[in-house]
Simulated scan of single mutants.
Amino acid sequence: MQLIELCTKDNLIIDAGALFTGIDQQVNKNVRVYIWDGKVQSIEKQAVNSRVEKPVGGMKNRRVIPANNMTVVPGLLDCHVHLALDGVSSPSPHRSVLRGRIRQKLASDLAYGIVAVRDGGDRDDIGLVCRDKVNNMELKGPVVMASGNAVRKKGEYGSFLGAGTTPKELAKTMKKLLMKNINQVKVLVSGIVSFKEYGRVGKIQFSLQELEQIVKIAGEHGLKVMAHASSD
């Protein structure tokens, strides 16, 4: 896989040997992709190795990327990650170790064509820090959509994702969370599936009314809700 750094201000023409858009299952052969104003404006069939004869859409300062021997695909999205967790250590390793792992993880994501990730939260707001560092170009990586702390009920599963709340404190917890400029709300609806007893799942943490309250508050601020739900 080859990574090419682009700027949204670039006027681009990509000559693709093959193009998969993801809109359907079809792979288009020998096409020319025109990009300006940060968007794909048109896709046209081209003869192999044909020349770009004239500017399109005012593309005077265009950049032509020869990818005639390559397959061009849209960037990939990873819809559920936890940048603060390594899947092995519990609790999370020391921050200096974690920083190195996250830097490596984000760089690896880009190398494999992942252009955006949705972080499912952590108790220390590490996902939010990563998002801001990527946005400020202090870290090289995909776009990070961060949840901050997960909303969970005190005493139930998920202490590594958030401090926990009670039904009476729910509105206050949501208000505090929204002040962190999160990209979506993460709520723990249930516990986890047992790895020792088949069919056993952690109990439901919030009532339907409480979940509706969370979704309503999030919606009032233009946010969607990401849910952990291992139960029925």
Rank of each mutant, 00 (worst) to 15 (best):
189 V>T: 11
126 I>H: 04
14 I>Y: 06
51 R>T: 13
152 R>E: 08
220 E>K: 15
76 L>D: 01
224 K>C: 11
24 D>N: 15
104 Q>Y: 05
51 R>D: 12
143 V>W: 03
123 R>Q: 06
104 Q>R: 15
67 A>D: 00
165 T>Q: 01
50 S>G: 10
140 K>H: 07
127 G>A: 13
14 I>Q: 05
123 R>D: 00
110 L>V: 12
70 M>D: 10
59 M>E: 04
169 E>K: 14
177 L>C: 01
105 K>L: 15
231 S>P: 01
202 G>S: 03
189 V>P: 04
208 L>N: 14
70 M>S: 07
89 S>V: 00
162 G>K: 09
79 C>H: 05
148 G>I: 08
52 V>I: 10
198 Y>W: 08
190 S>K: 09
111 A>H: 14
75 G>S: 01
109 D>K: 02
41 Q>F: 02
105 K>V: 09
59 M>A: 06
61 N>A: 08
91 P>W: 09
172 K>Q: 11
179 M>Q: 06
34 Y>M: 08
210 E>M: 08
115 V>N: 14
219 G>V: 07
45 K>M: 06
50 S>R: 12
145 M>C: 11
188 L>H: 04
80 H>V: 05
59 M>W: 10
158 G>R: 11
217 I>L: 11
56 V>H: 11
132 D>R: 11
22 G>Q: 12
107 A>N: 12
29 K>P: 01
108 S>I: 00
114 I>K: 08
164 G>M: 08
75 G>M: 05
113 G>R: 04
173 T>D: 09
223 L>A: 08
135 N>C: 02
107 A>P: 05
198 Y>H: 09
138 E>V: 04
130 C>Y: 12
70 M>K: 06
186 K>W: 03
150 A>F: 11
108 S>G: 04
56 V>Y: 15
28 N>Y: 13
211 L>S: 09
169 E>D: 15
86 D>C: 08
21 T>D: 10
154 K>I: 15
2 Q>K: 13
120 G>W: 07
27 V>S: 07
48 V>D: 10
130 C>N: 05
143 V>L: 10
47 A>L: 10
30 N>T: 00
65 I>P: 07
227 A>P: 12
12 L>F: 04
211 L>M: 15
35 I>F: 03
108 S>V: 01
132 D>M: 03
169 E>A: 14
40 V>T: 12
50 S>D: 09
227 A>E: 00
32 R>N: 09
53 E>K: 14
78 D>Q: 01
173 T>Y: 04
53 E>D: 13
15 D>A: 01
116 A>R: 09
66 P>R: 15
211 L>A: 06
172 K>G: 00
187 V>F: 06
16 A>V: 00
191 G>T: 03
88 V>E: 06
21 T>L: 02
29 K>V: 08
77 L>S: 12
193 V>F: 08
156 E>C: 02
